[in-house]
Computed example of a mutant assay.
Amino acid sequence: MSILQTKNLTKHFGSRTAVNQLSLEISSGQVFGLLGPNGSGKTTTLAMILGVLQPSAGEFSWFGQQPSATSRQKIGAILEQPSFYPYLTAVENLKAVAQIKNCSDDRINIVLETVGLLPRKHDKFQTYSLGMKQRLAIASALLADPEVLILDEPTNGLDPAGIVEIREIIQKIADSGKTIVLASHLLSEVQKVCSHFGILKEGKLLHQGSIQQIEGEKITIEVGADDMTQLEEVLRNIKGVLAINRDGSFYRLEVEHEVSTSYIMQHLQEHHITPTHILRKQGNLEQEFLKILASHA
C-alpha cells in the first residue's frame, strides 16, 4: 500500500529553488532513507510533507488521500533538535507531550522501553546525554502510536555508541511494522537500517531504489601474490570463481555470492601460496551514491 506520494513537489525561497519537482512514492513497511549533501533539500521536503512549509507547486498525499488532520494523527515526526523542559523528568515531559498531542499517556512506559530509557524515566532531562535526549525525542514521536515515523538526521552529532543505539532503535521500530522515513547524509548508516532510498541533489531527485538491488550486485575479490602465474593456475580451478581478470599487481575475480575470502585463502594455502593482497568487494550505497552524483555533475 502506498503511504506517501509526491508529484512535482517544489519549494522556492525567493530566487532559490530548494526542492525541484520532486516525485517519489513510499510504500507501507519501508524504511526509506532520503540521502543528499547539506543543502540538497532533505529537510525542506520533510517540512512540506509534514505541513510545516507550504509547497510553491506540486502536491502530495498520505495514505492515498489529500493531507488532513486525520492523516497527520497517523504520523510521528522529529524535524528539529529535541526540545523538552530541562527541569522535568522523562515521564513528566512525555505527559506534557501527550497533553499537547491530545493523546493518552498510557503508552509512556512502552515508548520509554522501546528507546531504552525506562530505567532513567524519573531522571531530569537536563541530566541526559545528547544520545539520550535524541532517544526521548523518538519516544515522544511514538507516543500516539503512529503508523509512520519521520526522522530528520536522527544521528546528527552523536558519538559512535550513540549512533549504534539509534540504529538499533530504528530497526526495532521497523520490525514492529511501522513505516519510517529518515533524512541522512551518513551513507553507511542508511545502508544498515533502510530498505529503500532516494538521492537528492540541489532539490532534484536523482535516483530512487532499493538497498537490496545494490547489495545484490556482483561480488569481486582482488587477489595478489609474488608468483602471479602460479596464482592464476590455482584460481582457475577454484569452484565458484566465474571470471579472472589481471589488474596490475593482482587478479580481479568475479565470484558467486557464497564465495568468501577465507574460502579463497583455504585453496591458496593448500598450494602453499601466501597472498600479498586479498580484498572482497560488493555493491554498496557509497559507491552507488558517488556514481549517481557523478552522472549528474
Rank of each mutant, 00 (worst) to 15 (best):
D226H: 12
H12P: 03
L94Q: 08
V164A: 13
S295L: 13
E254L: 03
L268H: 05
L117R: 07
S140Q: 14
E215T: 08
R107Q: 13
S295V: 07
S56E: 08
K204Y: 01
T229V: 12
P160W: 11
N8I: 05
H207N: 09
R72E: 12
N237H: 13
G198C: 04
K291E: 13
G39C: 09
L79E: 04
E254P: 00
S262A: 13
E92D: 15
D145S: 12
A225Y: 01
K178G: 03
R280K: 14
E168P: 06
V91Y: 06
G41E: 04
I238G: 00
K124M: 13
L235A: 02
Y251E: 00
A77H: 07
V31G: 00
T89S: 15
V97A: 08
D106I: 10
A98L: 06
A161N: 15
I150S: 02
V19E: 01
Q126K: 15
A57H: 11
S56F: 06
E59A: 13
I49G: 02
A174H: 00
F197P: 01
Y251L: 00
S129F: 13
L200I: 10
L279I: 09
E92L: 07
A144V: 09
T220L: 00
L205S: 08
I244Y: 01
L35G: 04
N284I: 03
I273V: 09
S71R: 03
S23L: 07
L94S: 07
Q73I: 04
T45Q: 10
K74Y: 08
T179Y: 00
E233P: 01
V115N: 10
R280P: 03
A297S: 13
E270N: 15
